[in-house]
């Protein structure tokens, strides 16, 4: 029960931080609120017993915050001016409630919190993948960290896809942000 109260407190904190990040006029405080959301998320991963994701999240959050703050400070205009349209607010709130209603409907079909999804599926079929992962990760791959055994041995195709996505996105960033363009006078001569 205390765990649930902790999560509720954190959920409210994250929602408030997200609202401030969207509605504040100062660009720098908006970036800081985005950082607070990231660090709160990593803390939640830690308490959900996923230290791998918590470490990754906190490292990526530090890096992203550095990049965003550098980009914000070097801007000339750090304050957002202008009025919000009334119809836009009404429309966004309506869409928000619609998505929440659909999401609450979808939560009813999910397995109970803390129950692995593959075990719930095993009641009808005889496949219990999550128990196999926990029992056989040490004997079949030799890795003490079961997460590493899953992402780099059994599900290594996923990791290859992730690496490809990262490679392609960085290729795109290099192409867009490169110093000399193809038509610049230095490359022509």
């Amino acid at each position: 029960m205390s765990m649930f109260c902790f999560f509720l407190f954190f959920m409210i904190f994250l929602v408030i931080a997200a609202l401030i990040a969207v509605h504040t006029d100062n660009l720098l405080s908006s970036v800081i609120c985005v950082g607070a959301i990231g660090f709160g998320g990593s803390l939640m991963f830690l308490f959900l017993r996923a230290p791998d994701i918590a470490i990754t999240q906190i490292a990526v959050e530090v890096l992203g915050l550095i990049i965003l703050i550098r980009a914000t400070i070097s801007r000339d205009k750090t304050f957002i001016s202008g009025q919000r349209e009334f119809f836009g607010i009404v429309f966004s709130v309506a869409v928000l409630f619609a998505i929440s209603a659909v999401g609450l409907k979808g939560f009813e079909d999910l397995p109970e919190f803390g129950t692995p999804a593959f075990v719930a599926a095993a009641e009808t079929q005889e496949i219990v993948a999550s128990e196999d992962y926990i029992e056989q990760s040490l004997s079949r791959t030799g890795a003490a960290n079961a997460v590493a055994a899953v992402i780099l041995d059994w599900r290594a195709y996923d990791t290859l896809g992730e690496a490809t996505v990262l490679f392609t996105s960085i290729l795109g960033a290099v192409v867009i942000l490169r110093k000399e363009t193809r038509n610049s006078p230095e490359t022509i001569k």
């Binding site: 230290p51 791998d52 918590a54 470490i55 990754t56 490292a59 990526v60 530090v62 890096l63 550095i66 030799g142 890795a143 003490a144 960290n145 997460v147 590493a148 055994a149 992402i151 780099l152």
Partner: peptide, 21 residues
Amino acid sequence: FGHLTPGGGFAGGVILACSFI
């Protein structure tokens, strides 16, 4: 130590990049 303790290639790589940043 990614196969023994929490962490792994992605988190370690981000920390390596952070040291140069």
